[in-house]
Design a protein around this nucleic acid. Sequence first.
DNA 1: CGCATTATTGACTGGACTCAATATTTGTGG
DNA 2: CCACAAATATTGAGTCCAGTCAATAATGCG
Lengths: 277, 277
Amino acid sequence: MQNSVDLQPSGKYPRLAAVDSNISVAVQSSCGDCYQHSRCLACQLDNMELMQFNRDVKKPRRVNSGSHLFRMSDPFKSIFTVLSGCIKVYRLDTEGQEQIVGFRMPGDLVGIDAIGTAAYSTSAVTLEPSFLCEIPYAKFKQSSLEHPALQHELVVQLSKVVRAERMHGLNLAGTGAEYRLARFLIDTATQLSVCHSGPHSFTLSMSRGDIANYLGLAMETVSRTFTQFRDKGLISVRRKYISIPDIGLLENILTKEFSMPEGHGASVFQHTIAANC
Amino acid sequence: MQNSVDLQPSGKYPRLAAVDSNISVAVQSSCGDCYQHSRCLACQLDNMELMQFNRDVKKPRRVNSGSHLFRMSDPFKSIFTVLSGCIKVYRLDTEGQEQIVGFRMPGDLVGIDAIGTAAYSTSAVTLEPSFLCEIPYAKFKQSSLEHPALQHELVVQLSKVVRAERMHGLNLAGTGAEYRLARFLIDTATQLSVCHSGPHSFTLSMSRGDIANYLGLAMETVSRTFTQFRDKGLISVRRKYISIPDIGLLENILTKEFSMPEGHGASVFQHTIAANC
DNA sequence: CGCATTATTGACTGGACTCAATATTTGTGG
DNA sequence: CCACAAATATTGAGTCCAGTCAATAATGCG
C-alpha cells in the first residue's frame, strides 16, 4: 500500500527482455539527451524550460522486476514515463480477479488517466527490470502554469491514450483470436523496434495468461494460435522469444476473412509513433 | 465532408426518444443556467469567466436526427456537449465496415479525443433530434490561457474518457453476452435518469444492430438476450422502449457466474456521474 | 396500402472455452 | 550442480456459447 516505488514486493514476475540497455546514461543526464524525450510530456519544452523541468520535476530511476509503481486506490501522485522495460497495468474486479488493461513499453506514459481523481484506478507492476522517469504531478502542474507547452502536451498525450484504448476495444469487439493475437504481435513489434518493415524479434516479458487476459481469450487459445502462426511460417516462437521474419505476412491476418462477426473488420489506426519515424 | 453540422445529410436514423424537452430555453440562455452545466467543460468557471465563455466560446444549437456533427478525417474544429438526444460515434475500418465507438448522451462530450490531431478520428451522427453546445477548440484554447480552470477541466474530462473507454474494453474482454447487455442497459439507464435505484424506463434510439456492433455481438444475440431478460422478468421490452422495474435485479447479472473466460469478472467502476447525484 | 427496414425466432455450425494430461522451464534446497 | 517441486506452456478431447443462415413478424415510410 506504499505510495512510491517498492523494490521486489511480491517475489514474482521474472525475466529480462531483449531491449537496448545502456540507457542508464540518458536517464542520469538531461531530458534533452533522453532516449524517449520525443515521446515524453516534456517534449515540447525549449532548452531553458527543459533545464528547469530536468531539475525540478523529473525523477529518473531504475526498478527491479516485480516492483509496483502504484496500486489501485493508492493516492495519485505521479505519472511515469517508461524508458525501458515493460509494465503491466491491471485492475482487480469485484471478485478480485485480475483484469489486464495493457502493457506499457518504452515511450509510454503510465498513470496519466488518474489525473483529476484522488487515487489511481489501476495497479502498475514491472514485468522486468525497467528504467522509468517519475513525474510528480503536483510539481508538473505547478510548472505547467508557467509553461503552457506542458499543459498542451498533457492534453495531446491524453487524447492519444483515449484513441489507443478505443482501438483496443474495437479490436475486441470485432475480431477473432487470430486477428487479436496478430494485432498484438504487430503492435508490440512496432513499439519495441525502431520503425521498419523487415524482420523483428523480441522477448515478451508477460505470460501467456497475461496476453490471454488482455486479449479476452483463454490462455490455451493464445498458445494454440501461437503454434498455428508458427506452422504457417508467420513467426517463430520459443517460449517468450518471438521472431517475425516478415511483418507484412503477419499483417495479412488483419484482413476481412479473419474478422469475426458481421464483418467488423480491420483497423489501420496508427498509434502515431511520435517523431523519429 | 463539410466541417460544421449538416442538417439531414443521409436520410436515415429516425426516432425521437423520451428525453426531457424544453431545454431550448437553457440552451439559449447562460451557461450557468444550463441543464448540463455541471458536466460541461465550463463547469469550474466563476460567474465572470462564465459570462465571457458564454459570449465568446459556446455555440448552442438544435440539430435534427441524422445530422453529422463531423465525419472521420474532417479537420478538427470543435468539441460538443450533448444537452439532450443521442449521438452515435463510429468509424469505418479498412473494409469500410462501421465500428461503433459509443453512444453519447446528455452530459457527454463529443470529439474531445481529436485534440492534438488535425482531424477527427471518428464520425458522429445524431440518432434523434438533439440539443448540442458546440465549443470551437481554437476559442476554447485561447480562453483557457487566461482561465487555468478551463485547461484543468479539459484534462479531467479527458482522463475520465480514458477510464470509460478502458472499462468498455475490459467488459468486452472478460464477459459474455448477458453480462454485456446488462451492463449496457444499466449504464444507459443510469445516464438517462437522475440517479436513483428504483424503476427506470427509456427509449433507445439506436438499432439492435448498433447495440450489437458496439457490444461485439451479433444482432440476433442481442435480440435473443433481450427476450431472455424479459422472460426472466428483469426488463420489459417493446421494440426500442425499455423499462427496468428493478435495476437491482438486473445488476445480479453482473456477477461472477455470468462472466466468461477464466473468471474475468464484474467491474464496479463508477462512471463518476458528476455533481448533482 | 404495400414495400423496405428492422426485429424476432429457429435450426445448425463452429470457434473458442473447459477440463485434463503432458511437457517444458524456472526456482529451491540439499 | 543436480534433483525435485512449482509454475508455465503445450496439446488433446469434448462441450457450449454465440455466430451464420434463413424464414417470419412487426414497424415505419412513401
